[in-house]
Each structure stands twice: as structure tokens, then as C-alpha cells.
Design a protein around this nucleic acid. Structure first.
Lengths: 206, 206
DNA sequence: GTCTATAACTAGATAGAC
DNA sequence: GTCTATCTAGTTATAGAC
């Protein structure tokens, strides 16, 4: 589960990684348009001109954050799913991974969802393509379970969206020193979701 | 279900309602900090100075949107719950109402979630207090069901957060001309959620 | 209730020294 | 690789005419 660790060690990060980390925190807290290049520079104890040596524009900083985060997210999901057997175990692994990622890398995950609208059209297209691939993995897991007779899901597309909304929400409220550890949250979410798609659950309006 | 209709008829809205409607659309699309007062004025075919006759600041426009939306949301939820009997029916009514609101009043709902961070501290406090009341209703419904022996929910607080994240997500992707009508989506969400909390569902790791 | 004109400030970005 | 200095344009908000 390498993608759950920060992308670079905190001690001796190269300059561009320092910038991305600081930008992630600010974009998470105040939003992309709510964060000025001057503010970002001040946090980094640099002048604004110095930032432009590392990135050609503020927009490229945002894109780098989203692009890297989505790469890590998708890569980790594929590993997690590949390590499990059977439809239910694969769905459990996928949900667990998604929740852990959104807890451990909360700020990056939050920005990746909240700042899609701040991307230029070209950047947006590339990021959305990756997000769609990610969603397709979940749809595939549900479809496999339905075909295998272990899940009962009337609308795979809608259910995948519902599951992902629920799990992504963790990035909105998770706090490191909070009541529940990431693993505990992930465990509960897995149970909630598996119950809701399980063939043995109660039927509609029964 | 009066709160699912627009707050004011579109034809002869008073000026401040016209402003709030236009601002809601822009804040939803580009964010609060991504929308300039000039842009808002242009959309309304006014000069920026004219806006300041109706609202003292851009911040007050944002607050008015969130405050009204949360009032309507909480009011409608209480009505919906009061009209149902029994723990399961009440939860069904609450989830259905929440989803319908987030589909029918998508932009207001979206802004109310995404722009909390753009509120000044005083405004934020007031809005968060209302949001907490809203969440408390859901927690109360789950607790009642657990006490009545119809729900099996190990962690009411976490489950309420999970349910609300899932349903609120509808405001992110719902489209009026889309494949599914609001009622169809609400119906599916109700089933997903009721299954996941029902006592008769499969137990943990069974 | 809407306008023109503008004040006071901040935005993203660049030139060129060191 | 970071700095000082600065450009151009855009920002929220106000004064005062109509």
C-alpha cells in the first residue's frame, strides 16, 4: 500500500514537491481561487517570482496535484483489487482502499474532487478521463458480483456513484486525531456497502 | 413539499431574488472566489454599483444563499419526517426528501456544501449550527430504529455521516435531462440505505 | 433603483540582477 | 535557484448624478 504514504519524505523533499504540498494544504483550506500566489509563496518563505522558476503558472500547480493524486489513487485501487479473490472480497478491498486513501491523503483527495471546476478545459479532460477509469473499476466489481449471483444491484451505474460519494465524503470530515482511526472507518464502510448490495439482503419493500 | 419548488416564481421575482438566483448559478459553476462581482452584474445586465444597493457585500450574497437553503432544507426535512410513522418509514421519508431536495435544488445545495469555507467566521458559525441540527435529525432516526430493534447500526454517528455523504453526492452529478428522474434516484437510495441498516441484513463478516 | 466614474487594493506573471 | 522591482489587469466597494 505504498500510495497511502506521502509521495515524498517530508525531510528532504525537492523544491517542486514542497510547493505542491503547501499548495495542496492551501487549496484544500481556501480553494484554488481563494489562494493567491503571494500567499503560497509566503507559506513557503519564498518570493512569488521564485515559484515561477518551478512551475510556469498557478494552473499548472493545480493540475500537477490532481494528476499525481489520481495516478496514485487508480494505481493503488488496481493493486488492492488484484490482491483479492471473488466478487465480495474484491469489493471489500476496493472500498477499504478508497476510504483509507481519503483518510490518509485527505487534502490531496479533497482538492482532487473540489477543484475540478478550476482546471482549464484541456487539463479537465485529462483528469476526468482518469476519474472515469477509476469509477469503471467499481462498476466492474458490481457487475461481476451480479453476474456471479452474490450481489443484487438493480442499477450498477447509480450504485457505483452512490458508493463512491459515500466513501469520498470521508475526506470532508476525517481528522487525524479523531475518534476513529482510518482502519476502523474503512471497516464500517465496507460493512455498510456489502450489506446494501448483498443478494441475501431484504428485497425492495419486503 | 413546498421547499422543493424554487423559493420565488421565475417570472416576477424581486430584485434580490434575481441576484441570489444568478449568484447561485455562478458560485456553483466557478466558485465564490472564482466569480467576480462584475461577472455577476453582467449576467444580470446591471452595473456592479447596482448590486450594492441590494446587498452590502459579495459575502452577504453568499451567506443569504446558504442561510435560506439550509432553512428550507431543515424545514422540509422536519415536515417529511413528521408525516411518517415508525423508524423505518421515517428514515425512508428523510432519505427520500434529502435526495429530492439535492436533485430539484441542485445548485443551491451544491453551493451550500462547497462554499462553507468561503464564509466569514461569524457566518460560518451560524450556518454550521443549522447543518448540525440537520445531521442530528438523521442521528435521531437511526437511534430510534436501533432502540426499537428494527435497525442494526454499530456506530450511529458514523453511519449518519455516511448516509448524508452518499445522498448529498446527488447534487454533484444530477442532471435534469438525465437517465433517471429524481423520484427514481430517491427510491434507489432509500433501498440502498434501508438495506444497510436493517436488522435482518447479514451480520459483520458472516 | 440604476447609472458613470473612480478609489484603493490585489491578482498572476515577467525582467533581469545576483 | 532566489531575489527586487514592476507591469498590466482585475478585484471589491463607494460617491454622487439622475
Amino acid at each position: 500500500m505504498a500510495t497511502l504514504a506521502p509521495a515524498t519524505p517530508k525531510g528532504d523533499a525537492v523544491a517542486s514537491d514542497r510547493i505542491l504540498r503547501a499548495a495542496t494544504g492551501l487549496f484544500c483550506e481556501r480553494g484554488y481561487h481563494g489562494t493567491s500566489v503571494r500567499t503560497l509563496a509566503r507559506v513557503l518563505r519564498l518570493e512569488t517570482a521564485s515559484l515561477y522558476y518551478h512551475f510556469p503558472s498557478k494552473q499548472e500547480i493545480l493540475f500537477a496535484i490532481l494528476d499525481r493524486t489520481l495516478d496514485d489513487l487508480l494505481d493503488g485501487l488496481r493493486r488492492a483489487v488484484a490482491a483479492a479473490d471473488g466478487a465480495e472480497q474484491r469489493l471489500r478491498a476496493a472500498v477499504r482502499y478508497h476510504v483509507l486513501f481519503h483518510a490518509h491523503r485527505r487534502q490531496e483527495a479533497f482538492v482532487s474532487h473540489s477543484e475540478l471546476r478550476s482546471l482549464t478545459p484541456g487539463h479537465l479532460r485529462r483528469v476526468v478521463a482518469k476519474r472515469d477509469q477509476y469509477e469503471d473499476v467499481f462498476r466492474g466489481l458490481l457487475t461481476a458480483g451480479v453476474r456471479g449471483g452474490v450481489f443484487q444491484v438493480p442499477d450498477v451505474k447509480l450504485t457505483a456513484a452512490a458508493i463512491l460519494s459515500m466513501c469520498t465524503g470521508v475526506a470532508l470530515w476525517f481528522s487525524e486525531g479523531g475518534r476513529l482511526a482510518p482502519e476502523a472507518i474503512a471497516g464500517r464502510y465496507v460493512e455498510i456497502i456489502v450489506r446494501s448490495v448483498d443478494r441475501r439482503g431484504k428485497g425492495p419493500r419486503s
